[in-house]
Computed example of a mutant assay.
Amino acid sequence: MLALLMLNANEVVPKSVFLDELWGEDPPVSAHNTLQTYIFQIRKWLSRVLGIDPADVSNERLVTEPGGYRFCVPDQRQLDLGEFMFLAQEGEKEFASRNYADAVRLLNASLSLWSGHDTVEARPGGVLEAKFTHLRERRLRALEDRIEADLMLGRHRELLGELSSLAIEHPLHESLHGKLMISLARSGRVPDALKAYQRLRTSLVEELGLEPSEQLRSLQQAVLAEDPRVKADGEHELLELSTRSAG
């Protein structure tokens, strides 16, 4: 329940959402009373953690609204999630402005807030799982932008270990494989870059019955032909095509 409230800070979470998250389509007769008990316990915990009077918690922090409850936060950046979103957006702005060093700094700062927050002890229900899926995708987008900014700065060798792990973790993700191929080719490992492409192609064909995208096939041909654009550090058309359009 606390996770639902915090992920929807300053918004009313309907009681029906809590019931669905906790019990699915078959809530017990006592569900509403149990829900009120949980809210009472969360308010007690907030009072202790924040060091404020329980009445103030009810009036200012965890407020009862018609049909639901609202967790009030004066500044979203007081929460790790809010700070992550802010820093990721600022990093993306710097990337769009081609200020790659600042983009890396801000995106790394945003990603550092994720440590310890990508798993939960309790198995989430459908509502929370949808939220977590969205956040994982948002984190991956920030990670891709940070990696691409590093590539623009010529840090291909430093990225090899990270990209190799990510390619294993995301075996169907074309953009990550494209970045890995470029990093390998720029590090003088053209055969390994071609093997990375072949592993991706095999996974796509076997699991989805699909061939790699046109962009990634073009990158594979460029690597095979040792196109000088592949090995050139910094920003160029082929890098943008293969890493931002594929996947």
Rank of each mutant, 00 (worst) to 15 (best):
S115G: 07
L107D: 00
Y69D: 01
S183K: 05
P171T: 11
N108C: 12
G67M: 04
A122P: 05
L153D: 00
V104P: 01
G67C: 06
L143P: 03
S183Q: 05
S110R: 15
T119V: 13
G67K: 07
V127Y: 09
L79G: 02
P74A: 02
K93H: 11
K179Y: 11
A142N: 03
E94Y: 03
L81F: 10
E121I: 14
G188E: 03
I182H: 01
V73Y: 10
E162P: 00
E144C: 12
R155D: 06
G126R: 10
L163R: 13
K131F: 15
G116K: 11
M85R: 07
R70V: 02
N99R: 14
T64N: 13
A167N: 11
E174K: 06
K195R: 13
L163Q: 13
G154V: 04
L160G: 02
E137W: 08
R77N: 15
F132Y: 08
H117D: 11
S187Y: 09
A109Q: 15
L106N: 09
V127R: 07
G154W: 01
E158W: 07
K179P: 05
G82W: 08
A109W: 01
R136H: 07
Q76I: 14
E144Q: 14
K131H: 15
G154P: 01
E169T: 10
S112H: 10
N108A: 15
I147P: 01
L153S: 08
R189F: 02
W114H: 11
R139I: 04
G161T: 15
G125K: 03
R98Q: 15
E90N: 04
R77Y: 14
L166E: 04
L194A: 10
C72N: 05
L151F: 14
N108L: 11
R146M: 12
F86P: 02
T119D: 03
L159I: 08
L135W: 01
L172Y: 01
R157C: 08
L111F: 09
A101P: 11
V127S: 05
A193T: 13
E121R: 13
E65K: 09
R139V: 00
S110G: 15
F95G: 00
D118A: 12
F86C: 12
K93W: 09
S183P: 06
F86V: 03
M152D: 11
L166N: 08
L135E: 03
Y100H: 06
A142V: 02
D192V: 00
Q78E: 10
R139N: 06
L128P: 05
V104E: 00
K93E: 13
E162F: 04
Y69S: 02
E169S: 03
S187L: 13
S112F: 03
V127N: 03
L194T: 11
S115M: 03
L160P: 07
T133C: 01
